[in-house]
Write a protein that binds this DNA or RNA. Structure first.
Lengths: 353, 353
DNA sequence: CTGTTAGCGCCTTCAG
DNA sequence: CTGAAGGCGCTAACAG
């Protein structure tokens, strides 16, 4: 593919060069079968030799589709590293999938609720249907106003990590999530199976959607097992190291200290481990601790942390896949729930009590 | 803004409704001053009432510009959490800046060198000039082939985090970086000022561009200070917890153990601290340790880690700003070097030797 | 100041 | 199977 000085090679140039009409070039470019072998070859050579590349805007205008998707990331906080850790593999999953399918990705990060109104959000996309579909990534609950707006776009949409949502009767996009509930319940059962009967839970900020699901999974599991009622064994850790640390100090003060603590994320588990170390409570001998997220360092803690690995990459991949299918084949969206995996490491063990 | 059933409201509709021509509508939309007050008002009302939104593709086609930028993320590894930590604030900085200026962001993540050739990369952008400018984000050295390709695009480009580069004589895009060199040198000096004379360095993977700069900063600082020649005080830690851990074990074996260790990132510092703990070397009493990146947990380690905070957000913001200025005003690109800040915490102290 | 009219580059009927 | 031609929605140069 030699380099060419001339700025823009157009379909017309190719047509002339190959001695055919622009219509034929178009057919070749779009892989429409109704083209004779030799003609197609001629055209392909012309394209190659001239270094022709179709103009995206012109295609979009003529076909009424852009082959572009918008990933809308809704976050309330300016930046939250632990959230990024989850969101980036999702982005990567989307990226990898759509690239294979000839789509392009636009992205917009928006601090909805912090200075931006629902009106601002996705202004980009409205600006002239510059996108064929919408992926919405957030760990927060989506309010009515936002839902109405998304629904108003009348564009295929997928929620990643939450939903499904409805707006005024009908669904607003499909949902691709991972199973927060089952994995926490399973974690509880494993601990129970190890002989633990006083199992505590450090929850995260309650307005985060994953947080409330994890909490109810814990509560349900506790109820099912007929163990101690959670009451004092429940603390708020705000998803931070600090929060986990303080929560653990609270638990340690109880006369009947928990023998296991499930944390709604790894950072809180790290805080809890730190507190346990300070309080001379050996982990896992006298206290089992579990986390959630499997962040990079969890493996290197002392002891290495038992935690949950979230299928973030697959979340993105599946979301993109569903969305593209819907766009191209009109397949009605179908909600998906991916499993999350427990990673057993050394921070959990049999109850020695 | 009432909702409208009709699919697409076009400029023509607005023109008819406001009883003007499409040209006038266009002028209003584009804020071209040559429109009479009353006329403008009429048009604006019509736009409002009909819910008109200009079609992006049509604008792009007519004006030959897309008001869209491409962020190209080049990474060799599939996913590297520590890299994400740095790249996401950059993305956020870009996002925030361009949104204010009416630009849209496309993103492409590419594993150059792992299955993808330079030919594949940025295929998106080539596909019809669907973008006005290019931001390139990577921590790796960029090879000649890639440079030639980027240069061939003949599109404004900015390198974030590396560069500046040249290709066959002339520069290929401007560069926005942060000052790896000075901050490591300064770290060395601070340690020297604290009385340390045996200062070791754990470097990262040498093909990462930041890594080699940090290394030479260390070497230069050591030479300037006339302290022990680095020789044995230099180890490779591959930017991982594991690597830092092993490197520290190596240092501990020396007859003249270093009294301070500078690590090229926080993960390695964590590994080093872990090793120190196992070896019963108190930090910071007998060993000062510093990191780089200021990742989320560094603040909560025992002791909290002295490290370097990278201006990632500003990197993105400045990159976007430079790029847009270049696109809109043709201002020649100007390389930028942002300062990085040392965050002094408890892992460093006077040399007690 | 405003209307008219060519395109922008490509797709897609409609003939042939 | 292929060429011709209208049109996607908007902008910009040119009249008036």
């Amino acid at each position: 593919m030699p380099s060419h000085k001339n700025r823009k090679v157009t379909q017309m140039d190719v047509a002339r060069y190959a001695e055919v009409s622009t219509g034929t070039v178009s057919r070749v470019v779009n892989n429409i079968p109704l083209v004779d072998g030799p003609t197609r070859t001629k055209v392909l050579r012309a394209i190659e030799e001239l270094g022709y590349i179709p103009n995206h805007a012109a295609q979009a205008l003529a076909q009424g589709r852009t082959k572009s998707l918008l990933l809308l990331i809704l976050d309330k906080q300016p930046i939250l590293p632990s959230t990024w850790q989850y969101e980036l593999p999702v982005l990567q999953g989307i990226n990898d999938y759509i690239k294979k399918h000839g789509y392009t990705l636009q992205i917009e990060i928006t601090n909805y609720g912090q200075g931006e109104t629902a009106e601002d959000v996705g202004d980009t996309i409205l600006r002239g249907r510059s996108v064929d579909g919408l992926l919405i990534l957030t760990s927060w609950e989506i309010d009515e106003e936002m839902l109405r707006k998304i629904h108003g776009y009348a564009i295929p949409a997928i929620f990643i990590g939450n939903g499904p949502y409805r707006c005024g009767g009908h669904p607003v996009g499909a949902s691709v999530r991972f199973d927060n509930y089952s994995v926490i319940r399973e974690t509880y059962r494993i601990l129970y199976g190890l002989g633990h009967r006083r199992i505590a839970f450090i929850k995260g900020s309650t307005d985060q959607i994953h947080s409330s699901i994890r909490l109810s999974a814990f509560l349900d599991a506790a109820a099912e097992s007929g163990t101690e009622l959670p009451g004092p064994y429940l603390a708020e850790g705000h998803y931070s190291v600090q929060g986990g640390y303080q929560a653990m100090y609270g638990f340690a003060r109880l006369t009947e200290r928990p023998t296991a603590v499930i944390c709604a994320n790894d950072l809180m588990a790290i805080g809890a481990m730190k507190a346990a170390a300070e309080l001379d409570i050996p982990v896992p001998r006298e206290l089992s601790i579990t986390g959630f997220d499997d962040i990079e360092i969890s493996e290197y803690l002392s002891p290495p942390l038992t935690t949950v690995r979230v299928p973030a990459y697959d979340l993105g991949k599946n979301g993109a896949s569903l969305l593209i299918r819907q766009i191209e084949q009109g397949t009605p969206p179908e909600d998906t729930l991916l499993p999350a995996a427990i990673v057993l490491r050394k921070s959990t063990d049999k109850n020695a009590g």
